[in-house]
Amino acid sequence: MNIGFIREESNAMTDIPSVLITGASTGIGASYAERFARRGHDLVLVARDAARMEALATRLRQESEVTVDIIQADLTKPQELAAVETRLRDDRRIGILVNNAGAAKSGDFVDQAADDVANIIALNTTALVRLASAVAPRLVEAGEGAIINIASVVGLVPEFGQTVYGATKAFVLYFSQSLGLELASKGVYVQAVLPAATRTEIWERAGVDVNTIPGLMDVNELVDAALVGFDRREAVTIPPLPDAGQWDAYQAARQTMIPGFGQAHAAERYRIAR
C-alpha cells in the first residue's frame, strides 16, 4: 500500500513517498528495498558497505525505474548517524523509515566484551530512536507517514538466553507500541516487525554457524509477510506465529494487570505481619 501525501509548495511532498532503509546492503534491508522499489518508491539506502549498496541500487534503478540514493554510514558512530538524521529531517520526500540495522553477539553476557555490548545497544536502540526522532516531527506535520522498526521474537523470550540482544529488541517492541499509540491520531503509522530466526548474515557476524539453526525463514518470505502486516496497518507483525489469537491473548492478559498497578500500598502477599 502506498502512503499518499498532498503536494504542497512549502514541502514538495511526492504522491509516492521515498523510503529510507537502514542496514540496506543485504538481508532484510535489501529485501525491503526490492519490495518498495517494485511498489514505485524511490529509495535512500543506508549501510556500511557502499559497494554492495551501489550494486543493489544499480539493479533496482534498472528493474523498477526508481531513484536510489546511498549513504555509507556506521550508525554506531555519532557523526555518521548525524548525517542520516539530517537527511531524514531535511528531505521532505521521505515518508517511510525502515529501522532495520541491527547487530548481535554470540556467547553468554559474562563472556561478552563491554565494548561489544555497547555497540549492540548503540545500533539496536540508540540509532533506531534517534532516526525515528529525526523523522517523526516532520511526518506529524505532514499528517501522514510510517515508521517500521525491526524487533525480534527474542525480545519476548528471555529463555532464549540472548541477554543483551533480546533486551534491545524488547526495547524496540515497547518503543514501537508506545510511539504508535502517540502518533496514530496524528496520521503516522508505526509497525513493529518481530522475525524469528531468519537466514541473514547477522548470524555469521555474531559468530554463529547458520547451518546449526533449525527453522530458518527465508528473508524474502519474512519481508513479504511483514508487508502484508504493513498494508493491514498492524501495530505488531509476527510473521512466524501461526495463531494470531495467542498474541491477542498475551495482550489481553497484560492489559488486565494495568488497573492493579495504581495502588497506594503493596499487595497483600508482600506485607509482613508485625
Rank of each mutant, 00 (worst) to 15 (best):
I94W: 01
Q72A: 15
N149S: 02
F175R: 00
K77M: 11
T58H: 14
T126Y: 05
I258T: 08
A197E: 13
A83R: 05
D248C: 08
E63W: 08
A47I: 04
A267C: 04
T125F: 03
S31A: 13
A146Q: 00
A134Y: 02
L179F: 06
T58K: 14
L227F: 05
G4Q: 12
Q255W: 00
P242C: 09
P259T: 11
A253S: 11
A136M: 10
S10A: 14
M53S: 09
G215W: 11
N2D: 11
A57N: 03
E9S: 08
P239M: 13
G187K: 04
N119P: 00
A184K: 15
G180A: 00
F5M: 14
L139C: 06
Q112A: 14
P17N: 07
R271L: 15
G215Y: 12
G40P: 05
S152E: 07
D224V: 04
E80A: 12
D248M: 11
S176H: 02
S64L: 05
D218K: 04
I272C: 02
S10N: 13
A122C: 03
K186G: 05
L183A: 02
R39G: 08
R39T: 06
A55D: 15
L181V: 10
D248I: 13
I28W: 03
I213P: 02
Q72F: 05
S31G: 05
P195E: 02
N220T: 11
K105L: 14
D243C: 10
I16P: 04
F230H: 00
L222F: 00
N149I: 01
R87Y: 07
L88K: 05
Y189K: 03
L227P: 01
E80G: 12
G161T: 14
A266Q: 13
V236K: 07
N211Q: 12
A122G: 01
I272M: 08
G166T: 06
I96A: 08
D248H: 15
V219C: 02
Q255E: 15
E8P: 06
I121R: 03
R35D: 12
V68R: 03
A104G: 15
I147P: 01
A127R: 11
R7M: 07
